[in-house]
Design a protein around this nucleic acid. Structure first.
Length: 490
RNA sequence: GCCGGUGUAGCUCAGUUGGAUAGAGCGCUUGACUGUGGAUCAAGAGGUCCCCGGUUCGACCCCGGGCGCCGGCACCA
């Protein structure tokens, strides 16, 4: 039809239909329960920020991914790409907020990069952050790591019984990475380039990392990857660093200490990591769930200390579902005062994709309805009665929908309940009304029988899962039925 | 940004070596059944064949350009 607007979405943006939204809310609820056990408090900030607030915090790459928005009166705005920058702004803007300020925030963020939905990468997605601002102690870093572990454990417990969710948090430190610079005689301004390449070790392998550090190479698509032009002895030292790897955290630290034994101040930088490891161990977070891995650098430019990311062992190629680190200088931009902070972020939508892929989202979570009961409107002259029944059920705490469509035939209304997976249907026509009864229909019975019943007459004769109860017992009978069938409420 | 693939009904896709009114399955609507979901049967609605230009008597098909989508790479908070 000419003149109509084609309904469409920008690449990487999605509509989430009710079942998908229920699943997302399940993720959020589960994470929030864990975060609140740690005592974090909620914060909300706008999706839009001034461009100069967003810019210059997270490095060149992030700026390329910024969604710019035209504001009124020539103001230049952007959609937030994370929640941490806004948190730093809030801390600077409200100096009377008592510190430590430990907040959680769950909200969409926007990044204009290439979406890849199979790996849970979108241009608009929900992140669920916790951050502790004004905290120097590495106990806060430990808290971040254990919170990540506890979140993963919660999803293991919520999934299919007896199947814990295997995961691993990999931890490193920018301060330890920085020791590599004097050790390998690398100028400080080259550090971001070097760290970016180190981070690729897992994905590219040692050979390509070596090439990228020296002469560069052409990748599979023929695009040139520029080399960083380091000398052979520099690359040798970088590779010796990258070779550090051990299942036990204490062994990793020992190897780092040995490698950097001649670097001034190295021992002092390693002490906090040693204390963290001991604490983690004392709390029951062993070498199997938290590993030290010096190749973790993370791209985000604002990290200054500990960095960590979480991977699901059953989806090794998927990437991190939860990551973060310490950023002691982010507030400095706004306040001129150094405020130490550490935080971590669950990629809610990414985690949902992963758990779906692993078939670990309980089916009941992905429901299409919130209603437990549909009251049909069979006979319009009885409408007052239908409304009354609906509110009786609602006031008893039962999620109830009154059929408000135009369809008169009760069969179509039942079909509507079927399409939305509403588990119980109330039918009351003039016959029932005259007898002082209502009819309850357990939808699951018909669904179960549908495979067996071949003949329509038989189907009609059986009227599966239906029974009548006195009108006065409507609420108690529905409650009983919902208990028996498990109700669809959460 | 690079490489490859692809674009036909709401969805999944067939098709025409360039020829007249463009097809299937699923889904949707209606009815058989005006008081009951499924199945069955019947009927119906639904298309600028991605866009622009070119070649041709004639283009959904061939050619050129563009755009979208999918996959891979790069990048990734």
């Amino acid at each position: 039809m000419p003149g109509t607007v084609e309904p469409r979405l920008l690449r990487g943006l999605r509509d989430l239909m009710p079942a998908e939204m229920h699943a997302r809310q399940w993720i959020i609820d589960t994470v929030r329960r864990v975060y609140e056990t740690y005592g974090y408090v909620p914060l909300g900030t706008p999706a839009l920020e001034f461009l100069d607030i967003l810019r210059g915090t997270a490095g060149e790459e992030s700026e390329k991914q910024l969604f710019e928005v035209a504001g009124p009166e020539e103001t230049r705005l952007g959609l937030r790409f994370d929640q941490t920058v806004a948190l730093a702004r809030v801390v600077a803007q409200y100096p009377d907020v008592p510190r430590p300020f430990r907040r959680y925030q769950v909200a969409p963020v926007w990044r204009c990069d290439n979406p890849y939905e199979k790996r849970g990468r979108f241009r608009e997605f929900i992140q669920f952050d916790i951050d502790a601002v004004g905290v120097e102690s590495e106990v806060a870093d430990v808290e971040m790591i254990t919170a990540m572990c506890d979140v993963m454990a919660a999803f293991g417990a919520a999934g299919p019984a007896g199947r814990p969710l295997p995961f691993r948090v990999r931890v490193s430190s920018r301060r330890v990475l920085n020791l590599l610079l004097p050790y390998a005689d690398i100028a400080p301004e080259r550090a971001p380039d070097v760290f970016r390449v180190l981070d690729k070790l897992d994905k590219l392998g040692a050979e390509k990392v070596r090439l990228e550090l020296t002469t560069g190479y052409k990748d599979e698509s023929g695009s040139p990857v520029p080399g960083l032009g380091f000398s052979g002895s520099q690359v040798d030292r970088i590779e010796r660093f990258l070779a550090i790897r051990a299942p036990r955290r204490t062994d990793v630290l020992a190897q780092v200490a040995d490698l950097f034994r001649d670097v001034p101040g190295a021992a002092a930088e390693l002490e906090p990591l040693a204390r963290m490891s001991a604490q983690l161990a004392a709390l029951g977070y062993g070498d199997d769930v938290v590993v030290y891995d010096v190749s973790i650098a993370r791209g985000l430019a604002y990290y200054t200390g500990t960095v960590f990311e979480t991977e699901l062992l059953e989806l090794p190629e998927f990437g991190s579902v939860c990551s973060g680190g310490r950023y002691d200088d982010l507030v400095l931009r706004f306040l001129g005062e150094r405020v130490p902070a550490v935080g971590t972020s669950v990629g809610v939508d990414r985690l949902l994709v992963a758990l779906t892929e692993l078939d670990r989202v309980p089916p009941a979570v992905r429901r299409k309805a919130t209603a437990q009961v549909l009251v049909t409107t069979f006979d319009k002259s009885l409408m007052d009665e239908y409304v009354a029944m609906t509110y009786e059920l609602r006031r008893a705490g039962i999620n109830t929908e009154l059929y408000l469509g135009t369809e008169k035939r009760v069969g179509k209304q039942i079909r509507y309940a079927d399409q939305y997976d509403i588990p119980v249907v109330v039918v009351c026509g003039s016959d029932e009304k005259a007898r002082g009864e209502v009819q309850l229909k357990d939808m699951s019975v018909g669904r179960r029988l549908t495979a067996e019943v071949k003949d329509r007459e038989q189907w009609k004769a059986e009227r599966p899962g239906q029974f009548n109860v006195p009108r006065t017992e409507l609420v108690s009978a529905v409650q009983r039925l919902l208990r028996v069938i498990g109700g669809g409420s959460t």
